[in-house]
């Protein structure tokens, strides 16, 4: 198993993931969670690059030197959210204590039938929201992410709930945004993670936790072109069985200046970044974007 599994879970070994998934469902969460300790310890010992990124981030957010305990806690939170995807995707979301803030604002926007962009991030868990929406049938959510076939982890997890494939739009194809438009036209929600720039996507450098970092313009451009509202979404892991979901309306409609495009988008992107920073401070161990914060080299297309 590659040590880059933690940063790039899609590279994980499919057979091992299947075994862990089986154990997870057979033994139940309290017992299966003990497995997370040796797994995190393994990564603590063998993931030099990821650990450096984690430590550097933690030092900045905690404003003190970060030791191996902090890194372990960071890994453990990440492993917990991935592990919980097994339960969320197999319809056991009611097992969790999920607190939702801002749901009425979201429902008011959805009632307008204009569709809505749910702008998330690699802070916390996207799955907690998706499972909630899928199983309760109140919130049809389609997520832009790489197809299960490209990812061992997602291939195994999605087999727990095959219908989820109808709610995934792969990024980076000519018709990606046309497919997104069709969902929005139906009044549905489309989830996008707004904190990582892929491939040749247009990006903008913003200050994030005191350092410049590249953020994609795409989600905001999309909202402006289609005149759909943008709602921020954070699904944060509190520890134990508890997840906190926060919805915050960001923009009812974004107007683009034809000539000064990037400039008109900047205030919206900065507002997104400042809310992201806010929740990073509240849930520091939830930041699962294990790419170098100072590295604005763009990662190639990998899983969300």
């Amino acid at each position: 198993m590659s040590t880059r599994w933690l940063a790039q879970p899609e590279r994980g070994n499919r057979r091992l993931i299947r075994l862990l998934t089986w154990i997870t469902l057979k033994l139940g969460r309290p017992v299966a969670r003990w497995l997370l300790y040796p797994i995190c310890l393994y990564f603590l010992l063998f993931s030099g690059r990821t650990q450096r990124i984690s430590r550097e981030y933690l030092q900045r957010i905690l404003k003190r030197p970060a030791g191996w305990r902090d890194v372990f806690r960071h890994y453990h939170a990440f492993a917990s959210t991935i592990h919980d995807r097994v339960y969320l995707l197999s319809g056991r979301h009611r097992y969790f204590d999920i607190r939702i803030e801002g749901a009425s604002a979201l429902h008011a926007i959805l009632a307008q039938k204009r569709g809505c962009i749910l702008l998330g991030s690699h802070l916390g868990s996207f799955e907690v929201l998706r499972a909630h929406g899928l199983f309760d049938q109140q919130l049809p959510i389609t997520v832009i992410m790489h197809e299960a076939a490209a990812s061992n982890l997602n291939a195994v997890l999605h087999s727990l709930h095959p219908e989820i494939r109808d709610h995934i739009i792969p990024p980076g194809t000519p018709d990606t945004m046309l497919a997104v438009k069709e969902r929005l036209d139906q009044g549905e929600m489309v989830g996008i993670l707004g904190d990582r720039v892929f491939g040749d996507e247009k990006g903008m450098t913003c200050d994030f936790l005191g350092k410049p970092r590249m953020f994609p313009e795409g989600p905001f451009l999309l909202a402006a072109l289609l005149q759909v509202p943008v709602v921020l979404f954070f699904g944060l892991y509190q520890g134990g069985r508890q997840y906190d979901i926060h919805f915050e309306p960001l923009a009812d409609s974004i107007h683009l200046d034809r000539v000064r495009r990037s400039e008109t988008l900047r205030p919206w992107i900065e507002r997104y970044v400042s809310r992201l920073e806010h929740y990073c401070r509240l849930y520091p161990y939830n930041w699962f974007n294990f790419y170098d914060l100072t590295d604005d080299a763009r990662p190639s297309h990998t899983a969300v």
């Binding site: 990024p171 980076g172 194809t173 000519p174 018709d175 990606t176 945004m177 046309l178 497919a179 997104v180 438009k181 069709e182 040749d200 996507e201 247009k202 795409g218 451009l221 999309l222 072109l225 289609l226």
Partner: peptide, 23 residues
């Protein structure tokens, strides 16, 4: 990129009254 393709689709729809769909 994909956003550019969407802009083309919107412009095509306006000018030629032809809807481009993902299929």
């Amino acid at each position: 990129d994909s956003i550019d393709m969407l802009e083309i689709a919107l412009a095509v729809s306006k000018r030629y009254a032809v809807e481009l769909r993902s299929e």
